[in-house]
Design a binder for these strands. Structure first.
Lengths: 102, 102
DNA sequence: CAGGATCCCTACGGATACTG
DNA sequence: CAGTATCCGTAGGGATCCTG
């Protein structure tokens, strides 16, 4: 109940995660990825997000350790995105939160 | 693990909540309010947020049912903001999430 | 196929001044 | 005191075209 105001800066990474997921596209993307290994084009169709934004969000989510990017050295190139354990845990918690809110 | 893509739109309110809290100011505000009844000017100083933004965020958080606005008919006017039970629950959950992330 | 580069636009948020 | 009103700069994100 009584959080120390002085420590508000310690939440920097958490805020970044919140921001990434709160993006209009972010939530849709991470949910789409949660359904299993997903490729760029699939995400583009599933989320109706432009490639530019999609690329940015994926990079962001990957840097935060919520999703993992696996590139296969094939022709044509194939890249799959999956949730990391952390991402999975986070998403689970968020879905529970969502239920409380309605 | 397998969320239905078709139901992604059902999270509209949840997304709004996420957005409100993910705002650079939003998180600081709700944390400041969590320390007990807080007045506008106190929030302004504690969060270093301009009155315009502060006003907008407070309205947003109140509409979402996370904080409550109590106005006392006095001169000079006094308004206090407090966390609602929902807001408290949410903030608690978020702090737990924050710990997982580091 | 998976993105990077470029252009462009608007909507969020800061600063300042003013009011019930 | 607790906000609104106004002006304005910036950056986030769409559309489109291009490349390893």
């Amino acid at each position: 109940m009584c959080y120390n105001i002085g420590s508000m800066e310690d939440y920097r990474k958490f805020k970044q995660v919140l921001k990434a997921i709160a993006h209009e596209a972010g939530w849709d993307i991470i949910n789409a990825v949660s359904q299993g290994p997903t490729r760029f084009t699939n995400l583009e169709r599933a989320t109706k997000v432009s490639p530019r934004t999609l690329s940015e969000r994926l990079k962001e989510l990957a840097e935060l350790g919520l999703i993992e990017r696996k590139a296969y050295p094939e022709v044509p190139p194939r890249v799959e995105y999956t949730l990391t354990p952390l991402g999975k845990e986070l998403l689970d918690s968020l879905h529970k939160l969502a239920k409380k809110i309605g």
